[in-house]
Design a binder for these strands. Sequence first.
DNA 1: GATCATTTCAAACGGGCGTTTCAATCATAC
DNA 2: GTATGATTGAAACGCCCGTTTGAAATGATC
Lengths: 226, 226
Amino acid sequence: MSSTHSSTKERILSAAERLFAEAGIGNTSLRLITTRARVNLAAVNYHFGSKDGLVEAVYERRLGPVTREWLANIENLEHEYGDRPIPVERIVESFVRPVARLASDENRGGRIFTRLLAQGYTEARQYFDKLFSSQYQHVLDRYRQSLRTALPHLPPGTLCWRLQFLLGALTQGLCGGELLRLMEGQADPNDTERAVDELIPFLVAGLRAEAPRLRESGPSTQGALA
Amino acid sequence: MSSTHSSTKERILSAAERLFAEAGIGNTSLRLITTRARVNLAAVNYHFGSKDGLVEAVYERRLGPVTREWLANIENLEHEYGDRPIPVERIVESFVRPVARLASDENRGGRIFTRLLAQGYTEARQYFDKLFSSQYQHVLDRYRQSLRTALPHLPPGTLCWRLQFLLGALTQGLCGGELLRLMEGQADPNDTERAVDELIPFLVAGLRAEAPRLRESGPSTQGALA
DNA sequence: GATCATTTCAAACGGGCGTTTCAATCATAC
DNA sequence: GTATGATTGAAACGCCCGTTTGAAATGATC
């Protein structure tokens, strides 16, 4: 391993990231990637072993820093508040910020990468699951723990669902942006700061909402519809 | 065209839907699809023209009924309330229900299809954009209009953002479900009814939240924060 | 400046891809 | 039953895929 980082590796990663996000991983060939990166075809197998290795590297390059920032944020909050509940706003903001930083990292292509996250659940599930269980899950548990303390009235199951909704809204708000472009141009999907400003009150209100009265869970219990 | 629908077409659609959702469109070959469907390889090109045509057909089969149900729901509400604002809960529920119906349509594979929606933005963007601009967008505008009346205090831009968040939470809640599986098993991602019960108060509270105080949008104009 | 490991390069490999072909089969109407 | 059109079938087409190879170029070490 050379001490100076290879520009070839980075060029491949950036080209692959962009093309994966645009057309999907399965539809993007190594030949196209290496052509865009102005690099020899064999360089992918030399530096990353295989296409699978490249996919894994593309994800890890972006997800690592975000996870580390999440962890630092929640630990700072826990230290600042000790045993007292952390305000929901601060928990939410400390979770949203790292993703926003990634999404607004234009020059390094972060905005492009975020589109890949949606694909993580299907095309790249094998790598995604590995990454998730190794670091992502741990961070998510920390945030869930803090939210349980901040929202003690919420049933744990309800909190889990709301975390899921939160992640969906976050992904759509900071990584999707396609819908807004089609809605009369009344909102700019690339305005990351605006997205954060809009996301936080939406999410905080959703998390703070009263828990639903649940129906019976037995079979054939059709509650009377209003 | 024969009057009796071909069972071959349906078998191909179902097999393709499942395999696309599992591994991505680009990673699924026609040979695998036709083997699973116990159908001749050439049947795909005969019935759908090409692989692209098959992808389009897979999306259209599921999305058409949902869009029609959305339209009927919002029109019923508009008729019921006339010029008076429709309660946010009813708007949200009438939007969530059709997706939930699709997600819970186990025996016909609806649950599987929903995973494909996330891919729509990347792998199948060309078909998705076509479908979106032809019908989806119209329906979404109707819902947005009803929400504007129901939430007159919200700036239009904020409402657009919140609709985007709503769609993200909805997708993640009813179509994703992977995260919940990994969260200590405190929630069942296949419990569609529970998902709806949890989604509605979350979304209604988020929509009803106070609009954020926005920062100045000019360069380097950091307004005094309260 | 010879040695050695690292990196780049052009070319080729076998294999799987989407698609086409054309004959065989089926259903239906005469 | 035979003609007709719609469907299915087995085989092949050319193409592009991910990967491998072995030699050339590069850069550091002594």
